[in-house]
């Protein structure tokens, strides 16, 4: 068992690190497919990547119910670290979560099990944060939509392999939908619900 004193630390400078991390995430969301770096570093418990940890410290708090996939939830350090540094309540019911942390994309549940928002309040939807292997190797994807000047090309090694096929539900649901943030180490890419993706093969 890890005691609180032994938990990996949060940001060294809470205020400025959160600001810098937020700007990276904001830029990622505003320019889907672009790879943004998260500069400020915090300690991260085992299964959590550095980028994921920084995003958690930046956006999670008492007001954001949080859903963890089995990979994340099985680590006592992850839950303890999140509770201590963010105070976000961990929920079992993914349909009420503001954020979902997915450590094992291979076991990602159907997007329908998350909050998709309502017609009146489409913003009340889960932001799903998925840790992936890499933005330097893997398949190529063509992205179009708001935030993209014509076409953006994303290279990523992603599990589940059919992530973008699954995200097609966003097309029919809009303005309801799921926003996805992909994290690989300290790099982050956002796929908001407006982004349409075409696989380019390998």
């Amino acid at each position: 068992m890890t005691t609180i004193a032994e938990l990996p630390p949060g940001f060294a400078d809470k205020v400025l690190s959160a600001q810098s991390t937020f700007r990276s995430v904001m830029d990622a969301m505003a320019r889907p497919g672009s790879v943004q770096r998260i500069v400020p570093m915090a300690g991260a418990p085992d299964t959590m990547m550095r980028g994921t940890a920084a995003i958690a410290l930046t956006l999670f708090d008492h007001d954001t119910p949080l859903w963890l996939d089995a990979r994340m939830a099985e680590s006592a350090d992850v839950t303890k670290w999140l509770k201590f540094h963010t105070g976000a309540p961990v929920v079992q019911d993914s349909s009420v979560a503001s954020f979902a942390l997915v450590g094992d994309g291979g076991a990602l549940p159907s997007f329908e099990s998350f909050a998709l928002g309502t017609g009146e309040y489409p913003d009340r939807s889960t932001t799903v944060i998925v840790q992936i292997d890499s933005f330097t190797s893997g398949r190529g994807f063509e992205l179009r939509g708001p935030g993209i000047d014509g076409v953006a090309t994303l290279k990523a090694s992603i599990k589940p392999f059919d992530l973008f096929e699954r995200l097609q539900i966003n097309e029919a649901l809009f303005p309801r939908g799921i926003d996805v943030v992909l994290v690989a180490d300290d790099a982050v890419v956002a796929i908001p619900r407006t982004t349409r993706v075409v696989s380019k093969g390998s």
Binding site: F22, M26, M29, T58, F60, D123, G147
Partner: peptide, 19 residues
Amino acid sequence: DEQTKRMIRRAILKAIAIP
């Protein structure tokens, strides 16, 4: 305060996602 900033930042991200 930081709690307020987090709340506003979350709103900004959703605003960008739903133009």
